[in-house]
């Protein structure tokens, strides 16, 4: 799947300006970068939540996209009903709840879940149906280590089984290294480095990427 070159300006300041990017099906692409580098804006542009400068679409018109925002909203419904919203069916919802260890919360209203439980519910919600591109913005930020590892396994399985491209926005460099096949490094709203994860996340070419990696977990 190829995203169009796009830019986004807020209040006269260009916060994102990216070239066309190729996302390989069946692979996880990590998007890393410091705060304010434009990662979430990129995700929101791809998901169609905000329009790019000049309008138009960033993705092909028929691309089926699923997106889990950084603060995914728990609707005032039961956990099960929240997961069923995406239309994946009862069986899939049950399997995901069991896999994420939230089966006992199925009938509980989602607005009463803890931060970590809400994140699990939100992840189950986007994973319940196959799609062409799955965008996950910090999906495990509020989960504990055990839950995060569980979630990572589910995302990887989903990616392999459905063959969809996964864009994983994360601050957790170790997570990016564990999961990603490809990686994008954004710096001040621009694409600074891209390529296979083993190069971008382990042996980057540009000094800004190296500095970021050193700061967040050692190059």
């Amino acid at each position: 799947m190829r995203t169009e070159a796009c830019a986004k300006t807020f209040g006269g300041r260009t916060v994102l300006s990216l070239p066309a990017i190729e996302l390989a099906p069946g692979r996880i692409c990590a998007v890393v970068g410091a705060n304010g580098s434009g990662k979430s804006t990129f995700a929101r542009l791809l998901a169609g939540v905000i329009p790019p400068d000049g309008g138009g679409a960033v993705l092909p018109p028929r691309a089926e996209v699923r997106y889990m925002p950084q603060k995914s909203y728990p609707f005032r419904l039961s956990t099960r009903a929240n997961i069923l919203l995406s239309g994946g069916g009862e069986e899939r919802a049950e399997a995901l709840m069991e896999a994420l260890q939230i089966g006992r919360l199925a009938r509980r209203r989602a607005t009463g879940l803890s931060g970590g439980e809400t994140a699990k519910m939100a992840l189950a919600r986007v994973l319940s149906r196959p799609c062409g591109l799955l965008i996950l913005d910090e999906p495990t930020a509020s989960m504990d280590m055990e839950a995060a590892i569980l979630a990572e396994g589910l995302i990887e399985t989903y990616c392999k089984e459905t063959g969809c491209a996964v864009l994983l926005i994360t601050h957790d460099l170790q997570q990016a290294r564990r999961m990603a096949g490809d990686a994008l490094f954004l710096y001040q709203g621009r694409l600074w480095e891209q390529g296979p994860a083993e190069r971008v996340l382990f042996a980057p070419e540009r000094p800004e990427t190296r500095r970021f990696l050193e700061f967040y977990g050692g190059a």
């Binding site: 929101r44 998901a47 169609g48 939540v49 089926e64 996209v65 699923r66 997106y67 889990m68 925002p69 603060k71 995914s72 909203y73 609707f75 919203l85 995406s86 239309g87 939100a122 919600r125 986007v126 149906r129 799609c131 965008i135």
Partner: peptide, 15 residues
């Protein structure tokens, strides 16, 4: 106060 996160989440689910 809630419209934006509701809309964003719903859009992300393809609703």
């Amino acid at each position: 106060g809630i419209a934006q996160p509701v809309r964003e989440t719903a859009k992300g689910l393809g609703l």
